[in-house]
Every structure is written in C-alpha cells, then in structure tokens.
C-alpha cells in the first residue's frame, strides 16, 4: 500500500541528529516495547511481514506523529487484537477480562536461543531465475492495496541487476496469510538521475532488493 512508512524522497523532516554508540533506548518503555514485540513471536500467530504491515498500515498522520517504538506498540496491539489473543476492550480498560489462549511462551533460555537462531528467508523453487547480473530491467508500476516492499520512488524505473540472491519468501503474500510464494530476489541498481531527475548528483547510485514480480525486462 502507499502508506506513510514509504518515506524515500519525502522532504521537510529536518536534519538528521547523530547519536552516540550504545544509546539504544530513550525511555524504559521502549525497552519493554522491543522485548514484548520479540517475545510474543513465540505464540506463532504472525510473521515478520504481518508485523511490518501492521505498523506500516497505520493511518498516515498517526504513523508520522508517532515515535518509532510507539509505532511498534500500536502495531503489536493491532496484531494481538486481530489474532484474538487480547480483546480491544482489554486494551481499552488496561486489564485482563478473560483467560488467555493456550500459546507457547519462551523461557529466558528459549528467548536467547531464538535471538541467535538463523532462520533463513530463502526457499527452493523449481523455476530458474529470469534475470542474471548485468541484465537491464524496469520496475513495474504497482500500487497494491496490500503490503509491498517496492518503494514508490523506485516504481517504473530502469535499472540493472547487480546481484541474484536466490528465491525469497514474498512479503506481499506472506503479510496476508500463510502462503509464502517465494520468488527470485535481485539487487537492482539505479542511477540517481533515473530516480530523481537532472537535479540529482550525477555520481549517485541507489540499490534496492526487488522480487522477480516487481520487474520486467528492459
């Protein structure tokens, strides 16, 4: 969807404020928000794409008006209610009104193992890759109402395949259900001028990762 999270090329947000290394949180609730979001994954009711979609489909004014971890909290609340794990009334009243569903909860050891686990996103597929490194491609002009990882600034643009990554699960599908629909994934390089016109620096290059369904031969 064309949501507020798709920020590439927007203007007016001011300067970037550097931050010292080692400052991860600015309030204790941010620590809790991170830990809750990661820990509840043990329940197995949603995946990372559903989680991203829950945040990114917040109404634009709310997304842009919320701090980063506030977006995480709001996304988590939406997921919990949609999955039937917590009632909207319980969030509203800030207390438990009915017993929980039987779901798995991590111990400390389970959590440590899960953070260190490598769970890859590539999948075996029967079809060969349509493109190879060096191929000229053009991204499609897509405006899906569901989840997508093709940024608006890179739609309908000519580029060159830089790297072939294997077939990866497709977020556009996986954000909405159990079907992973893996597709070949490519790194595609664009010139700054192709993306932004003549005002762009002549030596700017930008790469994105694009699933095969985002691309046509050029």
């Amino acid at each position: 969807m064309n949501g507020a999270a798709d920020l590439g090329g927007m203007m007016g947000f001011g300067r970037v404020v550097p931050e010292p290394e080692g400052e991860y949180f600015h309030a204790d609730w941010e620590r809790r928000a991170l830990a809750l979001t990661l820990a509840i994954a043990a329940a197995g009711r949603w995946n990372i794409d559903m989680s991203r979609h829950a945040r990114e489909s917040l109404p634009p004014a709310e997304y842009l008006g919320s701090s980063y971890y506030a977006i995480w909290v709001k996304g988590l609340e939406r997921l919990l209610v949609a999955a039937g794990l917590v009632g909207a009334d319980e969030l509203e009243q800030r207390r438990v009104l009915r017993p929980g569903e039987p779901v798995r909860a991590w111990t400390a050891d389970d959590a440590a193992a899960a953070m260190a686990a490598v769970v890859p996103y590539d999948r075996p597929v029967d079809t060969p890759a349509r493109f190879a490194a060096g191929d000229a491609v053009r991204t499609r002009v897509l405006h899906p109402t569901g989840h997508t990882r093709l940024p608006r600034y890179a739609r309908g643009k000519a580029g060159v395949v830089e790297r072939v990554h294997g077939a990866h699960v497709l977020p556009d599908a996986r954000a909405h259900g159990p079907d992973e629909r893996p597709q070949w994934l490519y790194t595609v390089r664009f010139t700054g001028r192709e993306l932004w016109g003549d005002a762009a620096a002549p030596d700017l290059g930008v790469t994105i990762e694009a699933w095969e369904g985002y691309l046509d031969p050029a």
Binding site: W29, A33, L36, L38, V73, E77, L91, V96
Partner: peptide, 23 residues
C-alpha cells in the same frame, strides 16, 4: 500504555518476565 500491555500479556501467560529481561 506499555506497562498495561505487558501486565496483560504476562497475566494471560503469553510472555514470561524472564524472557523479556533476556531479550
């Protein structure tokens, strides 16, 4: 809001405080 959310999730048995501290 987050304090309330945490207490709901702990009380329902969805997350354990020791797992949160570990993360």
């Amino acid at each position: 809001r987050v304090e309330a959310l945490e207490s709901i999730l702990v009380e329902k048995g969805y997350v354990r405080p020791d797992a949160l501290e570990e993360i």
